[in-house]
Design a protein around this nucleic acid. Structure first.
Lengths: 404, 404
DNA sequence: GAGATTTGTCAGCGTCCGAAACAAAGTATC
DNA sequence: GATACTTTGTTTCGGACGCTGACAAATCTC
């Protein structure tokens, strides 16, 4: 049965059927390429004639191209179809507290060019800088075919107004990035929370998401973010402010959190938490022997990872404590939502041989009855935040595994 | 943009547009009745001609009927359309540990007949009893037009296999109700978890859900169940076993729960929890003076409610403790999912003047940044569990505010 | 080279929606 | 009471879409 949501209904016109099938075919080419027209007909159940008309249109609009001929033991050779990689032109922007990355990707979400620069502390300064850099970035390739811009931000984004509501780790409140960027570039801009972007990236480009319709991306950095996809769609709450499981309290009497509550999950399981734990452990012993501390001041999370790697017990303990609490929070997600897949994103995945077993053990203890969820670390190299921004733009044209 | 989910894609045929619009029109009649064809055209954006064809078909199939004429200051009088209440015939079954209710409803989900009987402890005995009673119930009205049967159960239901996986408060495991019932009645049967049924009932028939696409129903009885609707759809996890926030641990070192974990939300905030708290409080003082206890043994939750009403301090404290922990769990749902609406279902809503303020205060303390969620008690009289079963059957034909 | 097989295209048909004209059924006005 | 106006609901026609079945194209096997 076709599902219709009438709280945001949209009547069908005579072009609706074509629109639906076109998206299905285009996404099928994306995921199965190279693929012939006859294959598409078999996969979709549409008639070969219909597929021909649709692909002709897609070729004309430069979404796809005809490639090599296939081989068959009998009969006419099929002509393979691909996404048109020449039509390179989605710009992704990933804003993080320390640095911001601008990247250009083709329709396969392969990155062609990247550029990063330090993130200014003041939002208006940053915004001016960003607009200038993106315009220059575009001018470098004047012949390219730009489709749009996707932006990922470490904070709450209001889906309706497309504004940044609050980014605690940046200290920004109520910033409009969309309009200035659109004015500076003339391209349409889509904004999304970083965890949601990771969830999108996984369902769009992930190798593990064949048929997966329910997953949660957990981003672990200065704080913890959660992006939830249910029934193939991003779960955005009333104002697009959903997915803040990082600020769910797991201990009523725990230490206070920036958000105003006490004992939030991210107070125990974020990178900052591990750094804090490590510093407390060393502070007590530093009195005894003068440690060769990381020069002056606070170590970074990378320092803690490296020290643990090198056999530092205190650092290892801090990581293990973090792993324990990651497991606690994730088992909350599993019992509460029971997704097929949970994807972990962040530097902590680099120490997965150490962290993973602890996480899995805590989950096994705490969710004895619901064992169907797989937990996997995301490859950092895939740049999930940035890839999510590409999906954000593509989902306007592709029927897409999920549309926000 | 029309949203397509390609992980469960379905291509469009020439009849797809009609199918979509027909559902939209039928649901529009349901929610706005009485309503004229011209109104439908304006509301939907479809042409009057299209509306005429669709309504003609719906009248022919007895879904709707023409009613009175409307009044207008000028011009031809419109003819009102209604759902056909003569076509009475959805059977709803609500299974609870103590008793089971069978009901017959019309297309407006108004109950025409009801019958209840004690729930047998043994699943196979119960099943035989149920089949017999439902068949008899149907035979009472041989002329009626039966559309299907919906069943709500207090436990985990696998959406794919449509079996009851586990019902802790019934002590049942892996029971197939669907097939026997279908064989006994010849009608199609849909099974759903009680909390999910309540969520469906609210979004289908609730007065508060105009335009609401994200809500959570929290059922409080022997345990706590949660039914989540996101983007207008029920969130069912990998195997339809989602929505078990009642078994999320809110205290790592809390008392053990039936589920095998410790400190689950429902250990603190369910009816059973309040009864336990009351008994512990009275046990200590009962040593001193022989209380006029509720005859022998355990009081029921109704007893606790009544005692608190009558001014019993111990009972009031037990309820207040329960209210506090309800607030704790609900604030978890709010920060994590941020739905527009949370609906509370259960006997505890009868004491809402006492419980509500405490719940709201705890939430205000714990979710300072996300204040957009309304929390409302469900009217017990509306029988949300039973109404949800009606929605379960209707959603096959109506485009529906949500489809599972 | 003929037949078999598979791919991809083409023409005709039924369904659907939209546009516009039209019939129906009232009210307002003179 | 006749005419103009207004609004509802129906009818007719044209354009878009997918499906069916025939056909051309391309290739292998015998």
């Amino acid at each position: 049965m076709r599902k219709i949501d009438l709280t945001s209904f949209q009547v069908a016109t005579s072009e609706t059927a074509r629109d639906i099938n076109r998206r299905i075919v285009l996404d099928m080419i994306r995921t199965r390429q190279p693929v012939s027209r006859a294959d598409l007909a078999r996969l979709s159940g549409l008639q070969r004639s219909t597929i021909s008309v649709i692909t002709e249109q897609l070729i004309e609009e430069q979404w796809i191209t005809e490639g090599a001929f296939g081989y068959l033991p009998r009969g006419r050779k099929p002509r393979f179809l691909h996404l048109n990689v020449e039509r390179a032109g989605i710009i992704g922007i990933n804003v993080r507290p320390t640095s911001t990355m601008i990247a250009l990707a083709d329709l396969n979400a392969r990155f062609i060019a990247q550029e990063s620069f330090p993130t200014a502390a003041e939002p208006q300064v940053f915004l001016k800088d960003l607009c200038q850099r993106v315009s220059d970035f575009i001018k470098l390739r004047p012949q390219a075919f730009y489709e749009g811009i996707g932006v990922s931000l470490p904070g709450r984004v209001d889906r309706l107004s497309q504004r940044l509501v609050f980014a605690p780790n940046l200290g920004w409140r109520d910033v409009d990035l969309k309009k200035p960027l659109e004015r500076a570039t003339g391209l349409s801009v889509e904004i999304e929370n970083a965890a949601n972007a990771c969830a999108l990236a996984e369902i769009w480009f992930g190798q593990r998401t064949n048929g997966v319709r329910d997953l949660i991306a957990v981003t672990v950095s200065e704080g913890i973010g959660t992006g939830i996809i249910a029934n193939g769609q991003l779960v955005n709450g009333s104002t697009g402010v959903a997915g803040e499981f990082g600020h769910v309290s797991i201990n009523e009497d725990g230490p206070p959190c920036k958000c105003g509550n006490r004992g939030c999950w991210e107070v125990y399981a974020s990178n900052s938490a591990a750094i804090r734990a490590y510093m407390q452990a060393t502070a007590s012993s530093r009195a005894k022997k003068a440690r060769p501390a990381q020069s002056s001041g606070k170590p970074t999370f990378e320092d803690v990872l490296r020290l643990a790697e090198q056999g530092d017990d205190k650092a290892a303990e801090a990581l293990e404590r973090m792993a324990h609490y990651l497991g606690v929070g994730i088992s909350m997600l599993i019992t509460g939502i029971a997704p097929s897949l949970i994807v972990l994103v962040g530097e902590v995945t680099r120490a997965w041989e150490r962290v993973g077993p602890i996480v899995n053990q805590v989950i096994a203890e705490r969710s004895p009855t619901v064992p169907m969820t797989r937990i996997v670390p995301a490859e950092d190299a895939a740049q999930p935040r940035l890839r999510g921004t590409i999906a954000l733009v593509l989902q306007k044209h592709f029927g897409a595994p999920s549309t926000a």
